[in-house]
């Protein structure tokens, strides 16, 4: 079962692409071969440098010339609707002919993208040494006022002091459907958590706790009222569940 650790495994380790079983094996191997640890760290720091240099582009306004014309889109939209219609018809016919139970519907879009977006934002900002947040916890009143205004509803960072995490601060991020807030926490061991808060469509139903592992980051997420919440961290699933429960109780 234990295939030898290859160069590809080390790259996949550096890119957080290993499954849990292989991850354990590679970590064990690296512990026994510390001379390769520096290599993996160097690859990770390359990726971090790329993000530092080029992520600024993500925040720049998109030049008008790049925006596809709206009249084009209507045509494409009609074709899409037609295609989806045929697909549904085919599915219905297929279902009737075969008489087998329909497959479970995929989860709603928000349920898929929320943990992913949260984990990406977590991975981008938690390694930041100098600029982990836009507004620090020392200006909490300003932070609360600013993010509440931008997200259109009162939003207060929950307290996690009883779990040993203090608020570092927060930032505003572009999300899939507009603006998103991210709060960051840190404990004495310098472990960082982020809470990603995304306004939900008005009709979104409350959803219970869900768990996702996004490239090694544990994410607990749920929808509560006007917001979708996702708590991301790397201290293990059980610890994260405890912290997420703490956040949920303070809503």
């Amino acid at each position: 079962m234990n295939a030898p650790i290859s160069d590809d495994d080390l790259h996949a380790y550096a890119d957080n692409r290993l499954d849990a079983a292989r991850l354990t094996q590679v970590e064990g191997w690296l512990a026994a071969h510390p001379e390769h640890r520096g290599q993996v760290d160097a690859w990770r720091s390359q990726s971090a440098r790329l993000h530092r240099a080029y992520d600024a582009v993500l925040d720049q306004p998109v030049p008008a010339r790049l925006m596809p014309a709206a009249n084009q889109s209507r045509w494409f939209e009609m074709r899409r609707v037609a295609f989806v219609g045929w697909l549904m018809l085919g599915t219905v016919i297929g279902f009737m002919l075969r008489g087998e139970p329909a497959r479970q519907a995929p989860p709603a879009q928000a349920g898929v993208s929320l943990p992913h977006m949260a984990a990406v934002a977590h991975a981008v900002y938690t390694p930041e040494v100098r600029h982990p947040v836009e507004v620090g916890a020392d200006q909490e009143a300003h932070l609360v006022g600013w993010l509440s205004k931008r997200l259109g509803a009162e939003l207060k960072p929950p307290r996690l002091d009883e779990a040993g995490y203090r608020l570092v601060g927060g930032r505003l991020l572009p999300g899939e459907r507009g603006e998103v807030a991210q709060f960051m926490y840190e404990n004495a061991a310098k472990n960082r958590l982020t809470l990603y808060v995304q306004p939900q469509a008005a009709q979104a139903a409350d959803a219970s706790f869900r768990y996702a592992n996004e490239k090694g980051i544990d994410v607990f997420y749920w929808i509560d009222g006007r917001f979708g919440y996702a708590l991301s961290g790397s201290t293990g699933r059980e610890d994260m569940l405890r912290l997420a429960t703490l956040v949920y109780r303070q809503r």
Binding site: L66, E77, R80, E176
Partner: peptide, 13 residues
């Protein structure tokens, strides 16, 4: 999300 919106959302990346 419409097809145009989906593409527009990818522009920053």
């Amino acid at each position: 999300m419409s097809s145009r919106d989906a593409i527009v959302a990818e522009i920053p990346r």
